[in-house]
Simulated assay, not measured.
Amino acid sequence: MKERELPLVALRAFAVAARSDNLSAAAEELGVTHGAVSKQVRSLEDWLGQQVFTREGRGLALTPYGKVLAERLSQSFRDIDAACQYVRRHRSKAVLAVEAPSTFAMYFLMPRLKRFETRYPNVAVWISTRMTGQTPDVSSNDLLITRGNTDRVGSHSKGTTALFEENLTPVCSTELLKKRPVRKPADILKHPLITSATRPGHWEAWLQEAGIRDYLFEGGHRFDHMFVAMHAVREGFGSIVAPREFFPGQAQWKLRCPLPGLAVRGETYFANPTLRADPRHVDRFVDWLKEEMKR
C-alpha cells in the first residue's frame, strides 16, 4: 500500500477518539465539531471494512480490531512526535552525512569523532558505512570516503582530496602478544595468519618485505570482509595485516602493531564531497581528518 492511499486525517481523528472519553472530548482536542470526528470515524470504518467502535449506552467502546489499531497508531504517532522533536531540537545544528568504508569508519573515524564534535558543536556528523564493492551513495551523503580508485564517484563529486596512503603492517591482539610475543618478523609466524577476501595479497607483500620467503598459506582463518576479520583478531584468533594508521600509539581496541616500522604501502584514501554538500562543513571535516592523520 502506498502512503498516499492512507486516510491520515481519519486515522488521526480515530487515534484521538480512542484515548478520549467520548467523541465530544476528541472533537474539543482536535478543534473540530463532534460531527466532523464522527464522520472521519465512519469513513475510516468504510475504508477498513471493519468497525472500530461499538456503542455502549451514551459512550463508545473499542472493538477488538479497534484496540489493535489504536495501540499501533498510538505508538506510531509517538514515534513521529519523537522524530519531529529531535529535528526541532537540532534546527540550529547542521548535519553532515558521511559515508565511509566499514573498517575505516569503525577503526579510524569513530574513535576520533568526539574531537570533531567538541570543536564544532553546531555540526552533527551522521555516518553510514559501505562494504567493499558497493557503489557509493551520492544522493544521500555530503561526503564520500573512498579507498583506491575513485571512478565510481565520477562526476558526482565537487573535487577529490587525498587523505593518506595506507602503511600495512601486522596487527595483533594484546592478549595474543602476551602469549606469543613478536620481537622480530619471523615471530609473527607463531600466530595463525588471518586474511580477508576484500584485501588479497597483503600478507604475501608484507612477508616479502620482511624477507620471509616461500611461506605456504594453509589452514588459518579467511573472512569475506576486513571488518569481520578484525573482530576475529580482537578475539585472539590470529594476526592480520592492516593499516597502521588505524592503531596509533596506545593499544586501541586491545590491538597493537608489534612491528610498526616494517610496513608496505597500501592504497590511498580520498575525500569526495558530493554536489549536495555545504562546502563550509565539508571543508572543516576534511581539514580535521588531515589533522588527525598528523597526530
Rank of each mutant, 00 (worst) to 15 (best):
A94E: 09
D21V: 05
K158Q: 10
F77Y: 15
L60Y: 13
R295H: 06
R42L: 10
H34V: 04
G211Q: 10
A232K: 05
Q208S: 09
V37F: 06
Q208P: 01
L193K: 00
R147F: 01
T33N: 06
Q252W: 13
P7V: 02
L48Q: 08
V264L: 06
L73E: 02
K190D: 11
E292P: 01
T274R: 12
E166D: 14
S173A: 11
K294D: 03
M110T: 10
L176A: 07
P64T: 05
Q50C: 07
D21I: 01
H221R: 04
G266T: 02
A124V: 01
P181W: 02
S76R: 13
L109H: 11
S76V: 07
G266M: 07
R265C: 11
L23Y: 12
R152Q: 13
S92E: 14
K178D: 12
R284M: 09
E218P: 00
R78Q: 14
T146K: 00
I127F: 12
S102E: 14
H34S: 05
G159C: 12
A10W: 03
R89K: 12
A242N: 10
S43E: 03
R112W: 04
E218Q: 15
R265W: 07
P258A: 05
D46Y: 15
R180P: 06
L255D: 09
P200N: 11
